[in-house]
Design a binder for these strands. Structure first.
Lengths: 286, 286
DNA sequence: AGCGGATACAGTACACCGTACGGAGAGAAT
DNA sequence: ATTCTCTCCGTACGGTGTACTGTATCCGCT
């Protein structure tokens, strides 16, 4: 369960890419397949949505689909690959922003779509264990974000970083919110157990002298709406304000990383990729 | 392995808190313990550091320590609790900033300490599966960050959000960097396999018309130093620039969440906590 | 029509996981 | 010396991902 078809150069990596981009049509030689790859992915997502990602196992998915456990392996090389397909499927449902909008509105649109996606598919927050799969839907969404940020006119290196920043922020906020709601939903505690917990920890170990800052923030309600559904927008706006400042005042504190001097002059767009030392990571892990 | 002693009100939660804050002195009734709790935690960290967090199992830790697997359970209630102790241990080694410095320098110091911690303990990035443990070292570091951000004079609600933002950003950047380096280190590929991978994916499915923005960024080197050791500082500076703007111009775009009107006037600091509907989450999940 | 062969399905099995249980032995308190 | 508590750990149980193998199925060919 660790970093599956991550190396795109390996045979497994290429098989994964092929699975993501053109799933094989079932060959017409043996007995007909009882399921489709889409059904398997859908079933896995249903299991993860219903019982949580911890309960996601090949046996449970197979049982949910009414087949034997090993039958899944005719559709999918393994659990990791199945999970990558699930991730790409989740990214498939995202709307595209109106491209006539200014860059900021488009980025906000992208961020809100991502937020909605994470809230609708909480099991997605486990995808950080993997590198983002190079699936078509993931890449389409990323492309939309990159295009929006490119509209700022900032140097390409800065654009890449800003896109990663936005992606990472939404992911982090969603992670906090999801673990928070899932935990308070798992057991219907709040009123009484909180009191008991206070007598256990807050009364025993928590010291006002040791933690004055946290105490002050807490007393003034600073932790109250930290995980409400729109609290993350604060961070997004702060981020985008910073970007806007970068656009209008290019001599800001944050230095443009590449823009000025580099090894060789690179050609503009339109030409085929010719660089030798790397490939676009695209998912950028967030 | 899901959300261990998360509810502070439960018996397990209280046991976890006690384990974190004052580990029990070994009772002098039966045979003497062969190990100490510290040794167990250290051994677990060594296993995770040497073989990766995926290889971290109770049997492996026990074998590393030269004891039977079940013996660990006399020191620790389970694997989840052991992992929480590992996390708190990792946070223990952090330096405190010079409190005479301005808030921005202190926040930067905190962020760089966090970055170094994540780089030194890559297994920490899996801690997002849990809520941050309420350990003393975690809380001490959080307190330092909160105090630094409080120096801005911003309303408490904003302070909490900014602290979470900084924490989340460092975590996200470290996650990207760690998965990146661990993946390229796991197999000594780069030159040839990259070429083959390009012929597999970049030549077959990647279309310049479908992904013009990513192509442009890639061609101009925008993805090159995305995961180098100081690329994350760009995001930090962008963030702190936004905070600074919030300090100097309180009518910025991002609205202060609480500061102005609320249910009741809260007392200042110095008094005991008297709120009834919650407790400081402190870790805030990042 | 009949057959050969490729293929889907699934049963069994293996290694590994976290950990519940219970027994054996150690060592302090009585 | 006895008793009682506690550590250590062997065994075992239910779970996981999946390799292997056998069997039933169905298409394409002759």
């Amino acid at each position: 369960m660790d970093e599956p078809g991550a190396e795109w150069g390996t045979a497994e990596g290429r098989a994964m890419i092929r699975l993501l981009w053109d799933p094989p049509t079932p060959p017409a030689r043996g007995p007909r397949q009882r399921l489709t790859l889409d059904q398997v992915v859908t079933g896995a997502i249903e299991v993860a949505a219903a019982h949580g990602v911890d309960e996601l196992s090949m046996r449970k998915v197979a049982q949910h689909l009414g087949v034997g456990a090993m039958s899944l392996y005719t559709y999918v090389p393994g659990k990791d690959e199945l999970f990558e397909l699930m991730i790409d499927r989740a990214w498939a449902g995202r709307a595209v922003p109106d491209r006539s909008l200014p860059w900021r509105a488009q980025v906000e649109f992208h961020a809100r779509e991502a937020w909605a996606m994470y809230r609708a598919n909480p099991w997605l927050i486990h995808s950080n264990l993997w590198r983002m799969p190079m699936g078509p839907h993931v890449l389409d969404a990323q492309e939309d974000l990159y295009r929006a940020v490119l509209l700022t006119g900032l140097p390409e290196g800065t654009v890449g970083r800003i896109a990663g920043l936005v992606e990472s922020h939404v992911f982090g906020a969603a992670r906090s919110a999801v673990t928070d709601t899932s935990m308070s939903a798992r057991t219907g505690v709040t009123p009484d157990d909180y009191w008991e917990s206070r007598s256990s920890f807050w009364g025993t170990y928590y010291s006002l002298e040791r933690f004055p800052a946290m105490t002050r923030i807490w007393q003034n309600g600073g932790f109250d709406e930290e995980f409400t559904d729109d609290a993350w927008e604060f961070g997004l706006q702060l981020l985008l304000d910073g970007v806007e400042r970068l656009v209008t005042a290019p001599d800001a504190t944050a230095p443009p990383p590449d823009g000025t001097a580099d090894d060789t002059a690179r050609p503009g767009d339109g030409t085929a990729p010719t660089r030798a030392d790397g490939d676009p990571p695209a998912g950028s892990g967030a």
